[in-house]
């Protein structure tokens, strides 16, 4: 068993969250040979009798989890985000359709994963699971929020998918502030009236960085940690749309299907205001260091700043 990585990566929060859930005897953890990576390994160490090793067989894992859920257990099943996608139809037909409370965690999501290359960089997971009825979709930004949201999944009815990241990020929360987080309620990190940057996952820290750069230019940004992609916090979106008049989304995910799509779908129908999307522009990644890759793919504070300026120009031209 490898030593746990130092705090700061959302996957570590997932691992700690599982440990906090262990006192509920209904909680069962499923692994597909990646427990050391997803951090379910700590639960396994403490509670081997409630950990089910499935081996490298993700399709089987999803339906074993469904069978456990139908028998009164609360299963948490994890592997890499990209490998959960292999079992998409199992999640759709075997878990979500009967509405079983199976909680799936896909770690190592996004370009942020880095040097493993494009085969490991899931950039479509949020989109494909968001398209499934009844699913709750989470993408926390740091370890404390991931821990807290994992714990709160226990009482969240129906299936869920949570994406965690491999690498450490700046901590946005501490143990106390994370406790206030609620599934389905976006968290306001910075308040500003000129534009709202709605972000998730590893892009939250980049959005904060962008807001600081823009502050020097006299642009006041709101920054939102929209850790729940589905159900989307429509009350908060309405407030932001009315207050700021334009929105920028930022995600380490394809611009097709994820947070940007979710926000745009809502604005198109309800508040037709300018929206700019920062995300992966319909392409695959490649191997590289996280920071250089994120910059190359347009997933950094500079890109967010450009999107904000463009969005405010559009608003002013209206």
């Amino acid at each position: 068993m490898s030593a746990p990585s130092e705090g700061g990566a959302s996957r570590d929060g997932y691992g700690r969250g599982l440990l906090r859930l262990a006192k509920d005897e209904r909680v069962v953890v499923l692994e597909a040979d990646l427990g050391k990576s997803t951090k379910s390994c700590h639960f396994r160490e403490g509670f081997p009798e409630r950990t089910v090793s499935i081996g490298i067989a993700e399709q089987n894992m999803m339906l074993v989890a469904a069978g456990l859920a139908s028998s009164g257990k609360i299963p948490f099943a994890s592997t890499f985000a990209i490998f959960t996608e292999r079992a998409f139809e199992q999640v759709r037909n075997g878990i979500a359709r009967p509405g079983l409370s199976v909680h799936i965690c896909g770690s190592h999501g996004g370009i942020h994963t880095g040097s493993d290359g494009s085969s490991a960089q899931s950039i479509e997971d949020l989109g494909i699971y968001r398209s499934i009825p009844k699913m709750t979709i989470l993408h926390p930004c740091d370890d404390f929020s991931a821990e807290e949201l994992t714990v709160k999944l226990l009482n969240n009815e129906g299936p869920s998918y949570m994406r965690t990241a491999r690498n450490k990020t700046s901590r946005i929360y501490d143990g106390d502030s994370a406790r206030n987080l609620e599934i389905g309620k976006g968290s306001t990190i910075i308040e500003g009236r000129d534009v709202a940057i709605i972000s998730c996952g590893v892009m939250v820290e980049r959005s904060i960085e962008a807001a600081r750069i823009l502050e020097d230019e006299g642009i006041a940004c709101s920054v939102i940690d929209m850790h729940t992609i589905k159900p989307l916090d429509l009350e908060l979106l309405t407030d932001l749309a009315e207050k700021c008049g334009c929105l920028v989304t930022a995600e380490d995910h394809s611009v097709i299907g994820g947070l940007g799509s979710a926000v745009s779908e809502w604005t198109a129908k309800n508040k037709p205001i300018p929206v700019e999307m920062v995300g992966v522009n319909d392409r695959f990644g490649e191997s590289g260091g996280t920071s250089e890759l994120m910059t190359m793919m347009g997933l950094d504070a500079i890109s967010i700043c450009s999107a904000v300026r463009k969005c405010i120009n559009r608003k002013n031209m209206q």
Binding site: E49, V52, N60, L63, V64, S70
Partner: peptide
Amino acid sequence: MGLSFGLGCSIAAKMD
């Protein structure tokens, strides 16, 4: 998919 689901039911029964 059914045999996998059955295995989940089987493991749950043993746990209980």
